[in-house]
Simulated assay, not measured.
Amino acid sequence: MTGWAALDGGPRAGARRPVRGDDGGAVTAELAVGLVAVVLVLSAVLSLGQAVVAQVRCTDAAAAGARAAARGATAGEVSATASALAGGDAVVQVVPGGGTVEVVVRRRVRLALPGAPALPVQGRAVAAAEPTGAGP
């Protein structure tokens, strides 16, 4: 219904403004579109947070594994230590060489976005191997 309604009070008492009755569902439609956009942005932010946390966990796990390997732990012990810190699906690679040991921890992160692929993350750490023989 389109027409004119009188304004209540004000300096121009008796002035009229248009009244529109044909936009009743517009607010609902705009709210629905806005909520979808908010949910998508929130999902993207949560996915970014997931990826960052997984990256930090992999880096911390690699550092712990490298410290354990530098102290003389076996590859199995290093792998168990790093996997426990990074998450059960982590792949741990131990690379000894030249008085150092390098530990690389890789895993895939499933993002909160619907239909998004798993994101690969990795952490890497190198530690100097400690002497294993008895000192003087």
Rank of each mutant, 00 (worst) to 15 (best):
T74S: 15
V33Q: 07
A54G: 12
E30K: 01
T28E: 04
A75E: 15
A70Q: 10
G49C: 01
A63G: 08
G9S: 10
P18T: 06
A51C: 11
R67T: 10
V33K: 02
A37Q: 03
A66Y: 13
L42V: 10
V39H: 04
V33D: 05
A61N: 12
D22P: 00
A63S: 14
V19Q: 06
A26Y: 01
T74I: 07
T59Y: 11
L42E: 03
L42M: 13
P18Y: 03
V19F: 02
A13Q: 12
G24V: 10
A70E: 13
E30N: 00
E30M: 13
V27G: 07
A44I: 06
E30F: 14
V27M: 09
Q50R: 10
G9I: 03
D60R: 13
A63Q: 15
V53C: 06
A26R: 00
A13Y: 07
R20N: 04
D60S: 15
V53P: 04
A61C: 14
R12K: 02
A70L: 12
D22A: 12
T28A: 15
G9A: 13
L48F: 13
A37T: 14
S43G: 12
G49A: 05
E30C: 07
V56C: 01
A70V: 13
R12C: 07
C58K: 04
V27I: 12
V45H: 04
S47H: 04
A62N: 08
R67M: 09
V38Q: 04
A26K: 00
T28M: 11
G10C: 05
G10T: 01
A70T: 12
A66D: 12
R16S: 06
D23Q: 11
V56R: 14
S47D: 05
A68K: 07
S43P: 01
P11N: 01
L42P: 01
Q50N: 02
Q55R: 13
A64D: 12
A68P: 06
A68R: 13
C58Q: 05
P11A: 14
G14Y: 05
L42H: 01
V38R: 01
A69L: 10
